[in-house]
Every structure is written in C-alpha cells, then in structure tokens.
Simulated scan of single mutants.
Amino acid sequence: MASLSEDAVEIAQGLIRCKSVTPDEGGALDYLQTKLQAAGFTCHRLPFEAAGTPTVDNLYARIGTGRPNLCFAGHTDVVPPGDDDAWTHAPFAGDIDQGLLYGRGASDMKGGVAAFVAAALDYLTFARGEPAGSISLLITGDEEGPAVNGTDKVLKWMAAHDEVLDHAIVGEPTNATQLGETIKIGRRGSLNGKVTVKGVQGHVAYPALANNPIRGLIAVLSSLYEEPLDHGNAHFAPSNLEVTTIDVRNPATNVIPAKAEALFNIRFNDDHTPESLQSWAREKAFMALEGSGLEAIFDYEPANPVFVTEPGTLSTLLSEAISDVTGLTPELSTAGGTSDARFIKDYCPVVEFGLTTESMHQVDERVSVADLEKLAVIYRRFLDLYFNGGTAS
C-alpha cells in the first residue's frame, strides 16, 4: 500500500486530542485551518446561531477557483465520552495500542476527516499547484447535535457566495466489518410521530360510564403493524414502522384514563412521502376505531427526507478507487440512519464512504491504524481518478 506525504494517523491523533464535544469546537477547527491554510486553502470560519440552540462554529476551505469543485464533507464534533474511567485509554488521548487508534471520534468521524485531509494535502504536493478544478472541505461542528447551525447553514452561505459544488463525499463510517465493502448512495427517510387516543375517564368498576383509550390505542397500533408498508425496491430496503414508547401516565389502578399515547418512527424508502405516510396512518386509525367512540390524533416532527444518488460518475470512480486499493467491489447501499448528506443532496450528487462502524459512540471507540492509512490512500486514488483520469499526479 502506497504511503502518503501526510500522515492521516497523526492528523487523527491531533483531532482526537481536541475535546470537541458538541457544540464545543474544542480547537479541532483551529487545528485543521492551520494545516489547510499552510497548503494554500482559503478558509472561512462560519459560526451560526439560532434561538433555542447553541452557537456552532464551522469551516469551509477551498483551493482552486475552477470547476469541477469536489467537496469532502464531515464533522469534528463528537458525542460525550461517558465515564472516562470505563475507557482502556483516555478518550481524548489519541493513544495507539496494538495497531488500534483509541479515542472519541476515532471512527465517527475524526478518522475520516483526517484521511481526506491527508489525501488532499498529498495530492496537492504531487500536483505541484492547484488541481484541475477545485478541492473543498466542509467541516461542521453540529452533526452530533441539533444539526441546525451546521452543514445546512454552511451550504446556504455557500450558495449566497457563489460557491458551487459539483460532487461531494461524506467521510462518515459506512463499513460494517471490512473497509471497502460499502458505499452509501442514499438514505431512507425518517418520520417521528405521536398518536394520542382520547377516551372517557371513569371508574374501572363502571366501564359502561367510561371509554378506555388503551383499547383504542392497542387497536390503532395493531393496524399500523398489520401489513408491511412495502417490500423494498432496487435501491432501498423495505420501509418499517417501529413503536418506541407507549404512555398513559395513570398512577391509579382504579381509574380508566382519559387518553393514551404512543411514539413511533417510520424509516421509509422512495415509494413514500411524509405526506402519504401521514394519510396512511390516519386512514388506518380511522378504520381501527370506527364505531368505538374513540378519537385518534396524530402529531409529527419535520421529516428527514429520503434520497438516493443514482449510480454514476461519483460512485463509479469511488468504487474503482476502493477496488484498486482493497481488491473489493463495494456494495452500493442506502442502509443506516441519517447524516449530513441529507442536506448536501440538494446541491450536488453525494455519496458516503469512510471507516468501519463497529465501535462508534462506544466506550473505547477505536479504529485500525492500517484501515485509517488505507482510507487515506483510497481518497488519494479517487482524487487521481477524478481530476486526472486515473493518471497519478
């Protein structure tokens, strides 16, 4: 495996040692900006705020002025480490032990950021100047938080300043067991809802004078689970609904409650829209409660949209780079949860590819040093394919 002029492991250690727990920047963006400016990148620090949310700092860096503009995107904020004493190695030490790099964010996703920074700097070293186009980096500090003052607002700032992206790679961890097995080309949508069934409160000994909403809630939930939403399609697994909590908040054993409620989440593919799912749930509830005298009321949070980047130039070149370095042919997948790719997809084709997922957010989060170095080489190979048609720069 080819080595790079920039050490991705060293950069990852530097980032891990910055305590950038959401929403704190923790010095991580300062660390990156210093490296990028020294290599000729123009850097913009972009703090944003909104009522009810913490102020978040972000970084957009670009070298080159031409098209295409290839963007590597990611985040340096991390989730809290939990109990420091539960870690084998201190969560912000960046220790290496038996070929593994330990630390909060090693997998999700300071390792990925370090790999694409190392790849970009190495490419510029051997290109002896600016690329035949532009390389940009969009680094947020708000991916693990509310995601209000991060990537979404950076992209809007970019659009207002004529910063156009042509393609983007998000360096989130994507591989379940082995580096190179999976590229994410989209994500299912996510819809959080609450259903409240209203009845008539009364004494349990006189049920004819009451109307128990729990019976109705059970009927509604059974109807929602009754049949599959769909059977999947070419790019997506079947949609699924999961009830996440059921609450009555009734402390008395001799009182029929006035209402019962449940929270649920629907992960949906592009056979559906949030609006069509809401109509479906409402119709199922109406039929389940017909003639009961009970009423079901639904409330929803704003949905995370479903999206897919159809296989094309981006996924083809990235697949070739992965195969060249690992010998594997990656699966094009839409599995998993949400990421900031959901914002980027409105501006350009975007895919996700990064390290393995097995230890992210866990105590003793860690990545293989060999995998981290290999990921940087994959990104570096992709840059050659993207800008130079595969000819090494």
Rank of each mutant, 00 (worst) to 15 (best):
N250F: 08
D108L: 10
A8V: 08
E365T: 02
K156P: 06
V148P: 00
F41W: 00
P257K: 07
K110G: 08
G354C: 07
R188W: 05
L137Q: 00
D122C: 08
S333W: 09
T42R: 09
S368Y: 13
A51W: 04
K284I: 12
A262L: 06
L221I: 15
P302V: 02
Q362V: 04
R342P: 05
M287D: 13
T34L: 01
L138S: 01
R188C: 04
A392R: 11
G150E: 02
W280Q: 06
A258M: 13
D364P: 05
D30L: 03
R62D: 09
E6K: 08
L137N: 00
G94I: 04
P47E: 09
E365P: 00
V113I: 15
A114L: 12
L70Y: 10
L209D: 11
G52P: 03
V243E: 05
A38L: 00
R215K: 08
E301D: 11
E6R: 09
G171Y: 04
G199K: 13
S107D: 14
V9T: 04
Q37P: 00
Q362T: 11
P251E: 07
T55P: 07
G129S: 03
H89L: 09
D230C: 12
R188A: 04
F236M: 04
V21E: 01
G103W: 15
T326S: 12
I96R: 01
F307V: 03
E301A: 13
A208P: 01
V164I: 14
R342Q: 02
V195T: 13
L385S: 01
F264Y: 08
P80R: 11
G64K: 08
G74C: 12
I139N: 03
E310A: 15
A61L: 02
C71Y: 05
L179T: 11
E172W: 11
G193T: 13
L191F: 01
A234R: 13
L36K: 00
S5T: 09
R380Q: 08
A12L: 07
V170S: 04
G193N: 14
P330T: 03
N388M: 02
V79N: 14
T55G: 06
V363L: 06
R45S: 07
V117G: 10
Q37M: 01
